[in-house]
Every structure is written in structure tokens, then in C-alpha cells.
Design a protein around this nucleic acid. Sequence first.
DNA 1: GAAAAAATTGCAATCGTTTGCATTTTTTTA
DNA 2: TAAAAAAATGCAAACGATTGCAATTTTTTC
Lengths: 338, 338
Amino acid sequence: MTADTKLTLAKLAELAGVSTSTASRALKDNPLIRKETRTKIQALAKEYNFSINAAASRLRTQKTNVIAVILNLIDNTEQSTTDPFLLKLVGELNQALNAKGYELLLSNSFMASDDWANYFIHSQRADGILVIGQGKTTEKIDRAAKSGVPIVVWGDTKTDAGYPIVGGNNFLGGYEATKYLLSQGAKRVLFLGDSEHAEMRERLRGFMQAHEEANIVPDFSHVGAIDITSKTAYQYMNDRIKANGLDFDGIVCVSDMVALGALKALKERYVGIPSDVGIVGYDDISLAELMHPALTTIRQNTQQAATLMVEQLLNQLENKPTENQVVETSLIVRRSTK
Amino acid sequence: MTADTKLTLAKLAELAGVSTSTASRALKDNPLIRKETRTKIQALAKEYNFSINAAASRLRTQKTNVIAVILNLIDNTEQSTTDPFLLKLVGELNQALNAKGYELLLSNSFMASDDWANYFIHSQRADGILVIGQGKTTEKIDRAAKSGVPIVVWGDTKTDAGYPIVGGNNFLGGYEATKYLLSQGAKRVLFLGDSEHAEMRERLRGFMQAHEEANIVPDFSHVGAIDITSKTAYQYMNDRIKANGLDFDGIVCVSDMVALGALKALKERYVGIPSDVGIVGYDDISLAELMHPALTTIRQNTQQAATLMVEQLLNQLENKPTENQVVETSLIVRRSTK
DNA sequence: GAAAAAATTGCAATCGTTTGCATTTTTTTA
DNA sequence: TAAAAAAATGCAAACGATTGCAATTTTTTC
């Protein structure tokens, strides 16, 4: 078609016989410009497949319309690259951000430099940061937040921090999962998950509370501390049964993946589920209902989570007040419990 | 600490008592600049937490060091937002890109404007495009490629296209899966997947070839055409059994997710696996081995896939020749087959 | 129909880096 | 020690869009 010399706003303006300022305004549908002029230039832009140079625009306006999403991986576990829940959340964030006119720059705590504020914000790569997961230490997050950049974290909302946190109601989730097992007659329930992790600690608190209300003193040897992958869960359960036999009749897991690992170990030993042992997962990933038996679990509403995170981030960008937000959490009863 | 007036290269240069050109070169370790000057400025930059303004740099150099990754979703299925295989690939691409100094801008075919070349490349948002999946029609891809932007696609490498394609050996995968089932005594094998999709069509070809070699004429009613999610697979299998009974003894699935759906349907009807029906999946997602029974499947090496895709894209950016690349594919035998 | 008001459009500076070329400083050479 | 060569630094012009303000055109008012 046309000679493929790069089309700039200036050239487009020339084609239209107007100044670049008029062209610029016309493209943004600025009412300062006469209606006819606007539509004419917009048509021309479409005809020539013109699109504004983002680099120049960002430089001039000091705004990128990009948000960095950081998967905050936990060292030496391969959790996040494989955990469907986290990836699902990324997908939902993508939707939510796009809906607000932002793009998503994906990163993770292994790759990104340690100084997030500088690397992403001051360098004008992004306008804000969404962090998925608090990790075991919030050091990097705290540092970034302290330097005042817009940031929102997915994690435990009870953590007292200088930035908004969005998360599930972990206490309630742990509580309901446990309460349900106990109400169905379980007497010795295991908690499977790493309590060094803030969110998991909350769930453990819920676990304790449910026991207390049922007047059962949870035997602490029943609390397993394991990294949150299915593989470690599988191994832990195997070892445990080998060592202690089947000294439990229920398991509360900190994720569906962990539940899957445990489930596999139990099935291999022909433990009846839910007849001998009831299992409750967490997250309600799409696989949960495909399990056999389908997994009873605590659902976290990821779409709402994404919306809330983006909302809180935009609040910061607009200098509005922010606050922690709790995402809906609900017990989904399926077949892995009585 | 220091007043928080934005630190630019010019100010940093002033602090160091040199010109901005010198500062700029020093930061990139350009040997034109005296060694001592370089280290001094670099130290200063670190001290003041300085980082180059990416927008300005991109504008000046006409390079972004960003690659757009587009999840090419298939209309009205929710495949891609949930399929662990695709998301795993995104994760691997992130690693591979970072290793080469690029960042990853995530997008999907629902959100991105239809004119990828313009939106991502001409607008200087990214230097190149990686597309995950060919979809049912390659229209958008073709258009972008035709306009000459650097692009690489994950898909069926036998498609003849004007751009490099990286993909698994789908023919071989389908062939081996089927051959294995037949070799274990299966007589009536089902192919579960949508053959309108290029990759799936190749797998189906492999399926046919294996039958031919075994001198079995596959009954075409045994080829199920379904969208590639576990839910549709589950429903399809349910309906099918209800209508026809158990008129098959093996299933070749186009993804592990599909296999999971089928597995669930069979288990619910107390069909023995692998005694009554053998199942082979595809992809070897991390859940495959957690299934009960653990899933026999065709593994695709995602890490290699990511590396090859990035390699081919960089070739284009450097004006080197490109070519289609086939990723390792291998049969992983587990317990869902005899 | 001229002056005032309103509606359009254009001028020109600016965002912060990079880089070809010119200039200055240092080192080498004879 | 002066001239030539090499090394180090700086000048200034881009890159392409945006926007406050000034200038122009059009419409309204009397």
C-alpha cells in the first residue's frame, strides 16, 4: 500500500492538513476540537492504521498505563509456577486491569531486581505494582511500599502493613473446614500446611478455634508443617503413615494441591475416603471437582479478588484512601468428606 | 534522605561533575569512558538508587526490550485461562525472556485489539510477539505476520506459514499414545478432542496411522469432537456412555485436562481403569501423576518450548533466518494404561 | 456592521535518554 | 619540547507526543 515510512502523529496531521496539536486532541476525542475535524482525523488514523507511539506518550505524560504483577515465589519451592490458583489469579488480574485500561507486565520475585520501586516505578516501566503472595518475609514489599509507590498485595489481611492487602478470610476458611470435619464426626484432624506463612497461620488459628468450640484439644503432633506443594504433601503423608499408622481421621489442607498430594498417598494405601479419612482442600481450583472423590474445599473468589486488588491500586493512583479488603470465602461440600 | 525530586540522568551527571553523555555511557559500561569515571558514576547511581527512565530510553533507541505474549484463546471456551499447560508455558517464557534481557507483557486474544502489529509493535509497546496457540483460525496471526513484525507461534509446525512455528510433534504424540494402547490389547480406541484445531488434527493423523499399522480400521464413530476442556469431556463421556454403553476400551485424549474429565465420568460409573478402559492424556501437567490412577500421558517439554520460541523471536529481531522447531515429545507410562 | 464573546486551531516548550561528531585532555613519538 | 596520535569528555540534535497559552476564526450581540 503506502510507503512504509513510519507514521507519526506529525505526518498524520500533515495528511489531514492540521497541526499535531489538533491531531493529538482529535484522536483523544477532545471536545475542544470541532466534531467534524475529530471524526475526519479519527477516520484517517484508522485508514492508515496509525497508533500513537507509547514510548513518546509515556515520556510526555509521565504515565505508562502499565501495572507490574509480581508472583512472589517462595524460595526453593516451585509453588507458584505450577499452582493453578495463583495462575488463575494472574488471568483474572489481566481481565480486571484491561477493563480499566491498563496492561499487565508479568514478573516474579526470582527475576525482578530486588528494588521494585526503582525498577518498575521510578524507571517508568509501570504505574503500580500488584504482588501475589507475601512470601515468608515481606521485606521486599515493605521496602517498595515505604518508598511510596502504589502497591497492593494479595495475602493475609490481618497483617498490619503500610499498604493495602487483599485476601481471603483465612481464619474463617480454616475454621469452617475444620468445623465441618468435626461436625461429621472426625475426632483427630490433621492440619497440613506451613504455619510460618501468614495466610496459613490464620487458617491454623481457625482450625484451633473450631476445635476449641467442639471441646476437642487438638493434638499438636497432628499439625504437619510442610511446604505447600502436592509433592511434599504426598511425601509427608507417606512418611507419616509409615511411622505412625493411620492416627487421624480428617485432614484440613492449605491448598487443593496439597490435598491432591495427600489424597494420592491415602489412596495408594487403600484408605477409604471419606469413610476412613475426610479431606478438605482450599482454593477450589477447577480440578477440585474433577477429583475422585470430588474434593470438598474452601472456595476463594478469584474474580472478586482481582477486581478488589485493581480497585485498591487505582485508589492509590488517584490519591484516594485505601483499605484492606476481604474476599468471599465459602465451603464447597463435595465427596471427600462425609 | 535526599529531597525526593525525581532523579534524572542529568542530575546524576551533575552530582558526578560530568556531562550527561558521559554519565549515560558510564552506566552502560562503555569503554569510551575512563574506567575510574565509569565505576565512580556507577557507584553514585547505586547510592542514589538511580534508574534510567525506560520511556525516554525507548523513545530514543526505538527499542523496548519488551515482548508481548498473547494467549490466543479459543472463542467461547474457557480453555486458556485455566489450562495448566498453557499457563506453565507462560511461566517458562517469562524465565526464558528474562534470561535474554526482555520483559513479558501479558495479553490475550479477547483483550488485545485485533491489529496486533499496530497495537503492540508500531505503537512501540513491545519489540516482538509470542502467540500461544493457533486458535481455530490463524487470521489475526497471519495479518500481524504479513505486516512484517517479529512473531513466533506455538502450534502445529506442519502448518505452512510465513512465520516460525514452534510446537510438539503432534503426529508422533498421537501415534505413540494410540500405539501404546493398541499394543496393550485395546481394540476400540476413542479419540477425544476437536479435530478442527490444527494441532489436534495432527494427533488424529497419528491416531489413524497407528491403527493402520495395527491393521485395525478405526470406527469413525469413535472419534469424538469436543471442545478442549475437562468439563466438556466429562459431559461428552457421560452422554456417550448413556447412549451407547461402553463401546470402547481405550481413550486417547488431546490434553490431560480432557483426560481428567473423561476419567471422572468413567469412575463415577465404576468403569475399571485401566482394566476396562485405558486412558492416555497429553501434556503431562503436574497433576497427571497425582491422579488416581496416575495418568499415562504424552509429555511436551515446556522449558525447551519456551527457549526455542524466544530463540526464534530473537533471530527475527537480529535479522537472522528462522525456522520451525519441534519440541521433544515422549510417552510417559503410568497407571491409567495396562 | 462593528465589537465582544465563544469556539477552534496552532506555536513551541517539554518529557529524559542516546549518540554522531567536535572538542579537549592525555599520551606517545621523534 | 613540539607535533601527532590516542583517549576521554562534552555539545546539541534527535526520538514523538502532549498541553498551556496565544492566535485565529466563527458566532453572537446590540
